[in-house]
Design a protein around this nucleic acid. Structure first.
Length: 199
DNA sequence: CTAACGATTCGCT
DNA sequence: GCGAATCGTTAGT
């Protein structure tokens, strides 16, 4: 399967993309260790008029800079001093949109992921949460700015097609500081999946 | 330079 | 269910 092309990420509708990414396969290849999982939960962050977004209203800092570049890159940042959170950037140069991937269903390299997570058996705690899925896939801040059409990290279509009726929407997690923008229904996950951070 | 804080997780009660 | 862990980023002095 081919990585999704650059054009896929240039879409100006970040909410559409957040939903469309559900069911697709997120893959990493680190020193020959191939791991992947089906994206089961996402959140949309828009660079305009969304106080939950780090790059809201043109807030350019060293950290947010990558979101202003053309879409299709990895935005990884450290949260609570402990966790690496992985986002897909989208839209065209100058418009800072991103999709946070919050959970995956493990597919390839499960033994490798268990080892990275210091776990012995496979259950939802392996990769259902934005910090834990990054650890399972080996994503850290070295991935900041990496091209998602390259060979280290990429996203590809899978045989799993998610019908619109199979998508549950809710408010985003942990963004209470965003005031009324915290009420936007911009979190999406696959109905009936156990690979979700929180019901 | 300093201080406050976070798009979370884990372990303990 | 609750609180600690833990450090880079950010904005302000």
């Amino acid at each position: 399967m081919q990585p999704l092309p650059l054009s896929y990420y240039q879409n100006d509708d970040v909410v559409f993309l957040a939903k469309d990414l559900l069911g697709k396969k997120l893959c990493t290849n680190i020193n020959g260790q191939f791991t992947s999982g089906i994206i089961t939960e996402t959140e949309a962050y828009c660079g305009r008029n969304d106080k939950a977004c780090h790059a809201n209203n043109g807030k350019r800092t060293k950290r947010t800079e990558i979101m202003f570049q053309e879409g299709g890159k990895a935005y990884v940042y450290l949260c609570y001093g402990i966790h690496n959170l992985f986002n897909v950037t989208s839209n065209v140069n100058g418009l800072a949109d991103a999709i946070l991937v919050r959970a995956i269903q493990p597919v390839d390299g499960i033994e490798i992921m268990l080892e990275r997570r210091n776990k012995s058996k496979l259950d939802k705690t392996l990769s259902s949460g934005p910090g834990t899925l990054s650890q399972a896939l080996g994503i850290d801040r070295n991935f900041y700015g990496l091209d998602l059409t390259g060979h280290d990290i990429w996203i590809e279509n899978s045989t799993t097609k998610i019908a619109h009726s199979e998508i549950v929407e809710s408010t985003r997690i942990g963004v209470d500081y965003a005031g009324e923008d915290a009420l936007r229904p911009w979190r999406f996950y696959i109905k009936n999946s156990i690979w979700v951070s929180k019901l």
